[in-house]
Every structure is written in structure tokens, then in C-alpha cells.
Nucleic acid binder design. Structure first.
Lengths: 195, 195
DNA sequence: GTCTATAAGTGGATAGAC
DNA sequence: GTCTATCCACTTATAGAC
């Protein structure tokens, strides 16, 4: 049960965030949220219009938080390669999966544009930021002149999201780490033949 | 509603496979399965002990089918690079996601070793097959001597699984295609500096 | 084998007391 | 604002008729 010296609405949102991460949207009931938040039915329907409304608030916050974390690493110090490496190697609770990515497998989230929007915006923003870094690396000669920033950015993000899938299937973070290691070996700067 | 000239048990399994793909395990109710299969409660509990038992049969079949499809492409003709390319470019209904991969986000599947096992076995088999192909490519000089087959295999599989995530978030297959394109550009054979 | 009937519990939401 | 009571449909399963 979520506890802390905060408002009921706040506790409801935080409880929902936890449950959405653990069980997804379909797997999360108002009852479970209320139990964890230590609140009654009335509180929830006073602050929110219903489950979708509360979930929207929770998803928005989770998406913003993930975006801030990712951009914090990507805007850090180092060469373009080093920043992508830092992003790929940053500490993650791999077996929990990505709190944003996992929601894309939720039919009720994907069916609702309002619920899907925060996922799209966050993943897209990270992708754009990665693409810019790759282009930077190209200009500096760290990556070959023939690489496509947008494409590589999608590959990097997909490797992370897919790494979670492989890890959860096997019950071990090893597959995630292997995928990241493989990608880094492919990205690692070496002499580029001038097209 | 699923129809066809087959046994009731068969229709139940096929209906479950469809629903598990569309809505996951938590989002699939016996009632929905029975409606689609055109069967009554009694039929289901006659052939299976309950929802988990029926889901297990469905998941096993889906996992085997995916494995056969993937290995069919990977064991096809062509150089190692071409076979990996064929795997990455094979026709997919991208926005539906991977029928196996999506189940890894289902808490009740991951919590049950019997339900999780088929996912693990299938993804692991594809990974092993990919790793072997990369090693083959190394021997033939198509890939550099420093690449790690196991790691690259995980990267390839993760890019596919993560591509589904990005595509579903954006509501378009474009991100999947971009990720694959980026990966292929990184894998494409070129002159390798001898370590 | 397949059907309907039944049942205890949950899902999601409303009403009204305090 | 928060609580409890109430509601109806759904979930999962069992019982027993045909």
C-alpha cells in the first residue's frame, strides 16, 4: 500500500503508476488502486471521472518522467558514441520492463488516442534526440557518412524495448545486456570507408 | 466468431490464440473465447481444466508456429547476411505485434513458469539460430572477426521485438521499418579492419 | 460431448450520508 | 473530500440435464 505525506489525489496517481507498470491497464482495477492508495471509492470518483481519467494522469506523469531521465543521459557529457553508450548502459530494472513501452501491448490503451498520445510523444522525443546525436557523430566523422540518423535512432530504441521482451521471456536480464552489447559493437567507431 | 469444419477443442484453441494475440492473457475471458468459438461453458471445461490450461495449449501452438516460420526463413538460401536480411524483412502484420513477444508483458503469464516456458524456448531457439548464422558469416569473412554471434543475435531479435513496440506507440509501421533499416545498415558487409 | 443453470467474487460506476 | 451502500454486468467455475 502506497503511503506518504501527500494528498489523496497524489496517492491515487502514484498507486496507479505502480500498478500500470506491474499489471498494465487491463490488469489494473480501481479496487486494487484504492487498496494500494488507502482510499475509498468516493475519493477516486471525486478527483477523477473514472479509471481512464486516472490512468491518463498516471501515464502522462510516467511518460514525462521517462523522457526527462532519457534526455538527462543523452544530453550529458561525452562524444556522440559515448552518450548513446551511456543511454544504453544506464541502470535499469530490466525485468520490470519499460513503464511506457509495456503499455503499447495494452489493447485498451492503444484503442484510446488520449491514452496512447503520451507514449508516442515520449518515444518519439527520445528517438529525435538520438537521431540528432547520430547526425552529430556523422559530422565529427565518428560515424560513417552513409548512416541514417533516424534509422539508427529507431534501432537503438528498439533494441532497448526489445531487450526488455527477451529478458522477461527468459526471466533474466542477460538477453537485454547481450542485445545492448551487440548493438554497441556495431556502432563502435572504427575506420569508415568513404562511400 | 471462429468457424470451420473442425472439432470443438480445436475451435477453442484457435479462438484463444486469436484473443491472446489481440488482448493478452489478462484481457481474455473464457466468455469471449466461447463466443468466438461458438461453444458453451460445458465444452471448454470438458476439454480443458480451465483458462490457464486452455491458454497453455494456445500459447504452445503459437510459439511452435512462430518458431517454424522464423527457422524457415533463417534456413533459406543465401549468404548469412542475406538470411538475416530476409528474416528482418519478412512480411509481418507489424501493428498487431508479435503473438509471442506481447505475452511477456502479461503479469499472469510471466508469473506462471508453464505459460512462460514456450515463450522462452521459442525466442531462445531463434536467438541460437541467428547466432549460428552470424558465426557462419564470420568464418566466411562477411562479418568482422570481432563480432559476437550471441550478442548480435540478441540485437537482431530485440530490434524486431522493440520495433513492434515503437510501431504500436506511433500507430504506424514506419518506426519498425526504420529500426530494421538502421540495423541492416550496421550489419551490411564492408571491408573489416583485421583487429 | 455439449448445453443451460447457478454461484461467489470482481469490475467499474453511482448515490447519498457524514 | 471521504466514506459506505448499492448496482448491474462480467469473470471463472461447478452441477447436472440432455
Amino acid at each position: 500500500m502506497y503511503s506518504g505525506c501527500v494528498s489523496t489525489a497524489e496517492r491515487l496517481i502514484e498507486s496507479t503508476r505502480e500498478l500500470l507498470w506491474e499489471r498494465g491497464y487491463v490488469g489494473t482495477s480501481p479496487k486494487a488502486i484504492l487498496e494500494r492508495a488507502g482510499a475509498g471509492q468516493g475519493s477516486m470518483y471525486h478527483h477523477f471521472t473514472g479509471k481512464p481519467d486516472l490512468a491518463l494522469a498516471a501515464i502522462r506523469r510516467t511518460a514525462e518522467e521517462l523522457r526527462a531521465t532519457a534526455e538527462g543521459v543523452l544530453d550529458g557529457p561525452g562524444t556522440p558514441y559515448e552518450r548513446i553508450e551511456a543511454y544504453l548502459l544506464r541502470e535499469r530494472d530490466v525485468l520490470r520492463g519499460c513503464p511506457v513501452g509495456r503499455l503499447t501491448m495494452d489493447p485498451d490503451v492503444i484503442a484510446d488516442d488520449a491514452l496512447r498520445a503520451p507514449l508516442d510523444e515520449t518515444l518519439d522525443a527520445i528517438r529525435e534526440r538520438l537521431a540528432g546525436i547520430v547526425e552529430e557523430g556523422k559530422e565529427q566523422g565518428q560515424f560513417g557518412p552513409d548512416v541514417d540518423g533516424e534509422a539508427i535512432a529507431a534501432t537503438v530504441l528498439a533494441t532497448v524495448q526489445g531487450g526488455y521482451v527477451l529478458a522477461r521471456a527468459s526471466g533474466s536480464p542477460a538477453a537485454f545486456d547481450a542485445g545492448v552489447r551487440g548493438l554497441l559493437s556495431l556502432l563502435r567507431p572504427h575506420d569508415h570507408p568513404t562511400v
